[in-house]
Design a protein around this nucleic acid. Structure first.
Lengths: 211, 211
DNA sequence: TGTACATCAGTGAACGCGCGTTCACTGATGTAC
DNA sequence: TGTACATCAGTGAACGCGCGTTCACTGATGTAC
């Protein structure tokens, strides 16, 4: 059915973006074909170039979208906490959760896209998207850090982020082995020495998304 | 010139392994073709399957080789230091050095291969190679950590490793932006708060390799 | 040491396949009157 | 509101290309005598 309405076409564009944001995180940019992405929106591959200039251009849009989702999620989480210490704690706790490690497609793109981004040339759209997205997340984290001044809070956020992202990356690469959970636990202990760890298997309903 | 001597064939196998260990780290497994790898050893692509069962099998061998190089390098570095604090400091310092970030092909495979490894199925040879290699590096780091007992030293090593690997990953993905060096500096400050940072541009000759 | 022959490391053409991108075409949508 | 026509979202075949892997072949190496 060719020539759908403009409203429908816009919905299609959003579906392609949404599916790309998930599939690129799960399988990497080379691991997903244009036909896969269009198929995820119920379309055939030929129409792709009516929506995006190239696969690379879409990768930039998709990564930006994934980071926006993460920033919104982080802001939602810290909004419910009473003070900065609790806000930082909830971000750490969710980021290093087992569920976070498993659901790559909805997880933080700072980890799942880092390898792809590092290998792209400096001019690729995905690099700008990644840089801006990471900066946004770092600022959210810095806003809840303890510190004498803004510089100290930012430095704490950067070091914390390195630990969080590194732990998730290593845990995923060793998934299936005991070492995987060991890494997550060690990072959790390092970043949140005092309070309670994970809240237990959860009683009733929970949100589906993560870090 | 077909049918070279067995000694030459063994050298060819080592050259393929060596080139793979470098190129896979730089460009990822999908970023290098069998023809590229054979070409790096001065051969044509057809002979590849006389040396390795498949590209996947080679990836396992190459990653294991890369980790072995890293373990040797770490052991060489700590051998020259007077005490455990100095040993840990030199490992942190070299891992987070600017040169370490730039030379992906000779850098630690725990960072450069993590993305590829995480997306491979559980049965892929590269997963076992990565797991064993990472475990070896963690043990080297644990052996120079401060701690009440072996468990505490291992936990410290795992948390430190997460910070090191995460910082290098994020710095590479943001290379070219000020944030990149900022991340490395924050991780360095977190892991080595007291002693001297980088030793300065270096006076005379230096080794070529890194983390 | 020398000869005869089997072995096998490497060659290069060929295989089937999937990819990103292009393009002529279709027919419902959107618009001008 | 109704009609006529231009627009353009999506289709599916086709393009050129590079990939991992296979295979018949070559001729120096390695070995048996």
């Amino acid at each position: 059915m060719p020539r759908v309405s403009r409203a429908e076409a816009e919905i299609h564009r959003e579906q392609i973006t949404e599916a790309s944001a998930r599939l690129f995180r799960e399988r990497g940019i080379n691991g997903v074909s244009v036909a896969d992405l269009m198929g995820a929106a119920g379309l055939t591959h030929g129409g792709f170039y009516g929506h995006f200039e190239s696969k690379d251009a879409l990768a930039g849009v998709a990564v930006a979208h994934a980071f926006e989702q993460s920033v919104e999620r982080w802001n939602r989480r810290i909004a419910a906490a009473p003070d900065d210490a609790a806000r930082r704690a909830v971000l750490v706790d969710k980021f290093l959760a087992h569920r976070s490690m498993k659901d790559v497609g909805m997880g933080c793109p700072s980890v799942s896209m880092a390898g792809d981004v590092a290998r792209e040339p400096a001019t690729a759209p995905i690099r700008t998207a990644y840089l801006d997205g990471l900066e946004s997340l770092v600022q959210v984290l810095a806003s809840v850090e303890q510190g004498a001044d803004a510089a100290a809070k930012r430095a704490a956020a950067l070091a914390d982020f390195a630990t969080l992202a590194g732990a998730l990356m290593l845990a995923r690469a060793t998934e299936g082995a005991p070492l995987s959970a060991e890494i997550l636990a060690a990072a959790r202990a390092r970043l949140a020495p005092a309070p309670a760890p994970t809240p237990a298997p959860a009683p009733a309903r929970r949100k589906t998304r993560q870090a």
